[in-house]
Each structure stands twice: as structure tokens, then as C-alpha cells.
Amino acid sequence: MNALPSPVHDVTPTRDLFEARVEVNRRMCRDHYLLRLRITGPRDFPTTQPGQFIQLGCANPDRASRDTREEVTWQPGEVPALHQDELCHPSAFLRRPFSLSGRGDDVLGTWVEVIHRVVGVGTDWLSKLRVGDAVDFVGPLGNTFTRTPGKNNALLVGGGVGLPPMFYLAEALDAAGWKAMAFVGATTSELLAVSIEEGLVPESDGRPNRSIVQFASYSDPSVVTSDDGTIGMKGRVTDGLLPVIEKMSGAERSKTVIYTCGPEPMMHAVTKLAERFGIECQVCLEQAMACGMGTCQSCIVKIEPDTARGEVAQGRSVEGRDWRYKLACTDGPVFDSRRVVWG
């Protein structure tokens, strides 16, 4: 009876609105904050996989729902309470999408983590949360990165706010017995949202080492590149990736999957590299979202139609590739790079 587009991967659709309390709000670098949210309330949080995201309310959760939940206490003659704070000062009305960067289950229940960069009104509000504050979110949403049967090696390529899901992915791949190496791109050292292992620094010549705690905890080596050379190797993330791929044998490449999330030009460049060397690549796409639940049709991305399933093209790119709009929120956010029509 459900009209959900069938998930690309097997995720039970048990999305819901969850309430949570802030357990950790830690500044990781100039603009990035890590939020650990402890889920409160009676419902169990469904299982999640890397690649999935949540739609986090970036305004006092009471603002939207207090009025509808409370008993009526208004009496004739009383001045009705104002409920228009959304017009009094800038505040986020819609929820904001954030990839899960981690999740944990312990005796107290479930927590989820997101890492966000302050870029506007919603993320600014999040950055000011204090431990114990209430938030709510809709989730878990979207499809997931997948482990291709027969493969066991991963190259994780993250840039900017595309890095957080890679932390969660590194953990999941480790648990599944995969080998992984991480490639992290930043514009400058101040905007690199990672923890650096004491006594270690990312190599400036692009040699992988275990300097990034979030990957080193799973024994994964990492390479850092920065546009201005203030940390790691000066250059693009693909400049760090290329030599590693070049050194791999054909057999190794066929056992490898590249997972990437970050700015579109970066993902496009990574996709091209993957194609050149015949390596499978999964990309996590971002698009402006209103609902995150597949109803508003705002989060469109151009994907090659699946003609085998009777899908027809809706347009053709300048390179002559057919495309069809898919929804990043429910068909994605993770897609096979070969099917993404860029630009």
C-alpha cells in the first residue's frame, strides 16, 4: 500500500519524527561543529547505514508544535499569545538535511552524530545549542552506500561538508572486514573538520599516513589535500587520489569501490578518474531540499534513465547523454557515478 519509490537498496521505510537532546556540541574547526543527539522518547530509532541523512529542525522544536500540542487555556478577555516568532527574527522554517556522520547504541539508547558547517541561519542556530537542549528531526532518510559483493577495498573521497558521511562509512566498512583509505580535500587547514593524531601531520607530498583520527581508529590511512597548501599536500583531492590508483594492479582495481561526497566539481572529477581506471564509484549528491520525504519534488538530480525498467528520457545533456530527473532525497542521495549526468 506504500507509494514510496522502491528503495534502491534494502532499507526498511520506518522514517519518523524523532525528538532528541544535545549530548555533545563541539567545535571542530573554524566553521564546523559536531553535534551528538541522544534520541529521547519511546520509539526505537531504526537501523541506519552510511549515506543516509536526517532532516534536522534548526529552530526551537516547540515553536512549530507547541501550539498544536497544548491544551487550550485561553479565556475570554485574555490577550492571546503570539505565535509568530518566525516573523520577528531570522529563523529556519524548513528542516535542514545533514548526513549521518555516526551512530551509536548503548545502554541509554541511541545517539546520532552530524557534523555541520555554519553557512546560514539554520546552521548558526545549531552551533549555539547547549548540552541538554531539545531538537527534533525526521529520519532516517535516503538510500545508502552499498558494499558490492566480491569487493573488499574502498577509497573514501570526501571534501568540505561531504566528509562527515565518510566517517560513518569507514566504521561500517571496517565492521564488514573491508580495507579502506581516505582522501580528504579542504580549501584551507582552518576548514578541515577532522581530529589530527598527536605527533602526526598529514604528509605534504601526499603519502598516506594515519594522521586523521576518524580514519586511523579503523587503521585506515589517509591523504589530505588543501587548495592553499596550509595542510597536507597542496592541490585537489584528485591529485592525492591519482597516484594511489596508478599504483594499484588491475586485479586490485576490480576489487575496489570509490565512495565520494563533496562539492559537485570534486565529485565530477573523481567520477572521471574512476571511469578512466574502470573502478566502480558511488557518489552522494546534494540538492536543495524542502521535505526530504519525496513529496515536494524540489531535490532533482539528472540521472540516466533505466531503460530496462521502462524509464524514458526527459532531456539530453550537451554531451549527448539522456537524463531523467530523480529525487536526491528518496531515489538517492547515493547514485552509481556512471548514471549521473553532470552539469
Binding site: 518566525e86 516573523l87 529556519a92 522554517f93 536543495a288 519534488q297 524540489s298 532533482i300 526527459q314 530527473y325
Partner: peptide, 20 residues
């Protein structure tokens, strides 16, 4: 109908604009 190109929505103070 395939609808308009992205971006199709933007939030403004206390509301949103859509051009789906």
C-alpha cells in the same frame, strides 16, 4: 511534465518560494 530546472525552492523569512 518534468518540471523546472534546479534550484526549485528557496527559503525566505517565515516561508518558502517554490518553482516546481
Amino acid at each position: 511534465r518534468k518540471g523546472n530546472e534546479a534550484y526549485r525552492i528557496v527559503e525566505t523569512r517565515g516561508g518558502m518560494l517554490n518553482a516546481i
